[in-house]
Write a protein that binds this DNA or RNA. Structure first.
Lengths: 202, 202
DNA sequence: AAAGAATGCGGACCCTCGGTCCGCTTAACG
DNA sequence: CGTTAAGCGGACCGAGGGTCCGCATTCTTT
């Protein structure tokens, strides 16, 4: 097995770098303003260390993003309703989108940085595929809903980092208002269909 | 009036640069692969000329994009139905989105390049605001549709260049199929609402 | 515990690319 | 045809991502 455990200082530096990057992204306005040299400096290590630990810029970003996203993933995969897997699609889809929106609101800069430095499109990022698959599967279970594939893309597009940033940051739409609008939109997409007139219960 | 007419060679070079950029974007896969030096070389002029003509990279991109988009804008503002202003929102909204989708399909690389080099978010680009305003206004006229503002953003997000590129380019979804999916999604968004059961005519 | 091996560190270095500058060219106009 | 200034080109600059390699630190072995 080629797996050797990493040295202690390496692990520590890795953490320091993640923390430094996080801090800098939170502090700076534009993600491009955060240089790798600056991150290394903030962490108190050399550039070489950074590259050894993460390979390149996207690598670092992905690592940070993955770390931050972990709790959400957890909550979706094994958490309690309405996010958890036991919830029926009709409620779980809106819950998921809301969770994603909240996540991006809480990690605005970081999400922005990843989606725009992600080397081209965010659609190649593994986590995108993850959410898309999940959403797609859930949507496919909703009766009367066709094209779950495209619909999943479209719904995810509604919570893209730069749109969220634009609305929350530039236009100062308050958090709860944004969530409400997204919820309304999601409901509109899910509740449509040919036989809407008889579904008034619950 | 401070407006002096430009010299003949200047105008010619400007055109040559636009054409060169167009060609290179069409040829190259990644928009980042197209450097300004390459564009200048392709056009047979020096870099200085390029910068004199367009100021900077985004400037060139915007100019190119605007030129390409002009016909669409024209068709929307003064063309025949279903794109023109005489069409009622219910039909005009899908028509507009379809036109936008087709445009991005026909100008994939270019649209990609603009949206990702547009210095941060595409949401600051004037043309985005243009389409958003128009869509917003149209949506507001549709009875039973709330949050026209957010809905407009969400619908536009469904035809973003990188998503289109992902679907048409990476996943090889054929043009007509994509258009159909978008149309279905749009219809779903528009046709929803509380009093769906009585609208069978047209 | 000491010594050898291997892993990791740091920052000088390189390269590419957007953008600037300035002396020369050339269109425009009288 | 001469004057003028708009325009041209490409050498040059600075910034930032990524590489490299001699030195330091940690792990392993006896």
């Amino acid at each position: 097995m080629p797996e050797r455990k990493p040295r202690k200082d390496a692990a520590r530096n890795r953490q320091a770098l993640l923390a430094a990057a996080d801090a800098l992204f939170a502090r700076c306005d534009s993600p491009d303003g955060v240089t790798l040299a600056a991150i290394a400096a903030e962490a108190g290590v050399g550039k070489g260390t950074l590259f050894r630990a993460f390979g390149d810029r996207p690598g670092l970003l992905r690592a940070l993003y993955a770390a931050r996203l972990e709790p959400v993933k957890e909550a979706v995969e094994a958490g309690p309703p309405p996010l958890g897997p036991t919830t029926p699609p009709q409620q779980r889809v809106p819950a998921l989108l809301d969770a994603l929106l909240c996540f991006k609101l809480d990690n605005r800069r970081l999400a922005l940085a990843l989606e725009e430095t992600g080397n081209g499109s965010p659609y190649r990022a593994e986590h995108y595929e993850h959410w898309h698959n999940l959403l797609d599967t859930m949507l496919a279970r909703i009766p009367g809903l066709t094209d779950s594939d495209f619909t999943a893309h479209a719904l995810l597009a509604a919570v893209r980092a730069d749109l969220v940033e634009h609305l929350a940051g530039n236009e100062r739409v308050p958090r709860e208002r944004l969530r409400a609008k997204l919820a309304a939109f999601t409901a509109r997409v899910l509740d449509s269909g040919p036989m809407r007139e008889l579904a008034g219960d619950d």
